[in-house]
Design a binder for these strands. Structure first.
Lengths: 220, 220
DNA sequence: TGTCCAGTTTAAGATTGTTTTAATGCAAGT
DNA sequence: ACTTGCATTAAAACAATCTTAAACTGGACA
């Protein structure tokens, strides 16, 4: 699960992110409203968590803009004050949940999980392609264990069986947007995955399309 | 997704186009207002991005003419100055969004996606002409793989069935905007494509029009 | 606090497919 | 028949990608 967390209090953000990581939740962090909006418009997240009081643009502004563009990603609003006012506005503008500050991270995690499990956007726990079966809950591919990154790449490949995906797309989804990541990361992990596919004796291969990206296909 | 980008600053355009391509957004570039208008009137684009300050015809002129003809393609205006004036005019004349220069390409991408509302993944772009089917996401022609340049040329030919395109146009499009490139490149690749068409047993041929360029047609 | 460990990042060299080059052959128009 | 423009090849140059192994990291645990 990858979420966007827009929060200007750095130390709070760091603490929360730390705990979310332990729960295997990937977080992209934005420190102000402008950056938050920019990231929120990317089709990259399972949930967006918005503080209301923010520099430059408020969480409500972001919410409104995002919903105005027809983006339906679940959104949780956070409010420093337990103002009923804000709560009502947020839900009016199409927020999916609301959490009063201060909150326990466990509470946030519970709500994140609840939102992601909703039928409309339910996460598929298992993906199949030909003789491959990827289990996302255990992170196994036909029984053999994968690392985080391996599983992330495999998931993307298996979700788009017909078409190729670029290294940039993989970087954005699997590594996140924190800094400048290298395309070589993807190449290294594709190499690991190929080795794994071979050792599983799968018929499936990861095909390189130069200057474009990767796709799954059956061995020629 | 295919967009038209009208922008006179060549190096900016190159940089932006490079990044958009990696996001699988196809870009037609026009360097001045006249060319921009001509292309904008073709029903070829999902979004049109217009710089305001342009040689020959301003972005606002283009906007006005395009909307005057009843064309509803979403339009994003770019302004070098963050002039409120321009912004208001643009939105008045029927622009759908507005972006102040300088902008981050990520921001532009986000807004493009928001306007088109198509998720980045799972987009399969296909072009057809007679018995040919070109799949841009996988870069295949009737199943057989093409290289970058081959696919680029084939795409141009298939987007303008009927009319011929010049070697200069192909160079500009497929090789890039810096035209220190040789026309022989195009000839070489047209030769490769012909070979490929023959091996696919297609009825379609690439016809040479001397001193002009190439077009697709059925074998005589 | 230190050590271990799985996972990740870095970097360099090997490899491969694509692009460019360039020489030659062919066809059309005058 | 001659000139110019185009077609075709194959080899050389190039760049993207692969692979490997070593260095690093942060968490778990003593």
């Amino acid at each position: 699960m990858r979420i966007l967390y827009v929060e200007d209090e750095k130390y709070l953000a760091e603490a929360v992110i730390h705990l979310l990581k332990k729960e295997k939740i990937n977080v992209d962090w934005a420190a102000d409203g402008e950056e938050g909006l920019e990231l929120a418009l990317k089709p990259n997240y399972d949930v967006i968590v918005l503080d209301i009081m923010l520099p430059k643009l408020s969480g409500l502004d972001i919410l409104q803009t995002v919903r105005g563009r027809g983006i339906k990603t679940p959104i949780i609003m956070l409010s420093a004050l337990n103002e009923v006012e804000d709560k009502i506005k947020g839900l009016d503008y199409g927020a999916d949940d609301y959490l009063a500050k201060p909150f326990k991270t466990a509470e946030l995690i519970a709500r994140l999980r609840a939102l992601v499990r909703r039928p409309a956007l339910a996460e598929v726990e298992k993906l199949e392609y030909e003789d491959l079966k990827l289990d996302l809950t255990n992170r196994t591919l036909n029984g053999s264990e994968l690392t985080d990154k391996e599983a992330g790449i495999m998931e993307m490949l298996m979700r788009t069986p017909g078409s190729a995906i670029t290294k940039e797309q993989i970087l954005a989804h699997v590594w996140g947007l924190d800094s400048e990541f290298e395309e070589n990361y993807v190449e290294v992990y594709v190499s690991y995955l190929r080795k794994k596919l071979k050792s599983l004796k799968s018929k499936v291969q990861i095909k390189t399309i130069r200057n474009l990206g990767y796709k799954l296909c059956l061995e020629s």
